[in-house]
């Protein structure tokens, strides 16, 4: 059933964020460290090693297809006024850090790169 798919994502999310929160506690940081990342790794393991029936997969795909609309909603709830009004320091500090980081992408992408890059993965 489709709802099983939604439940699997939920289970991954809770386990991941729980583990991430324990990491954070151990490190003395508030919030969670990589909780969503851990949850994603769990879902990757599930999708690579457990055979899910088609309807369950459709449940997961439904949420993953809603991802961009959710990001649009997120964009619409950002504090854009603050981003524009923080003054030159905020704009330059955030802006230059962002733009300069882009230039590091090709440099670091070379680390541990195989001979050829495979593409065209099915989502």
């Amino acid at each position: 059933m489709e709802i099983y798919g939604l439940g699997i994502i939920a289970a991954c999310m809770f386990v991941g964020v729980f583990v991430g929160s324990i990491f954070a506690k151990l490190l003395g940081v508030s919030g969670d460290v990589g909780g969503v990342g851990i949850a994603m790794l769990l879902l990757v393991l599930v999708s690579n090693y457990i055979k899910l029936d088609e309807k369950t997969q459709n449940g997961i795909k439904l949420i993953s297809n809603l991802y961009i609309p959710i990001i649009v909603a997120m964009a619409a709830t950002q504090d854009v006024v603050k981003a524009l009004s923080g003054g030159a320091v905020a704009f330059l500090a955030g802006g230059v850090a962002t733009v300069a980081s882009f230039f590091l992408v090709p440099l670091l992408s070379r680390i541990g790169k195989g001979e050829k890059i495979s593409q065209g993965r099915e989502m």
Partner: peptide, 16 residues
């Protein structure tokens, strides 16, 4: 909440 839930769902099918 929904952002994280949806981000996690995108990992489905990612290649190990």
């Amino acid at each position: 909440m929904f952002r994280d839930y949806a981000i996690i769902s995108t990992a489905f099918g990612a290649n190990i």
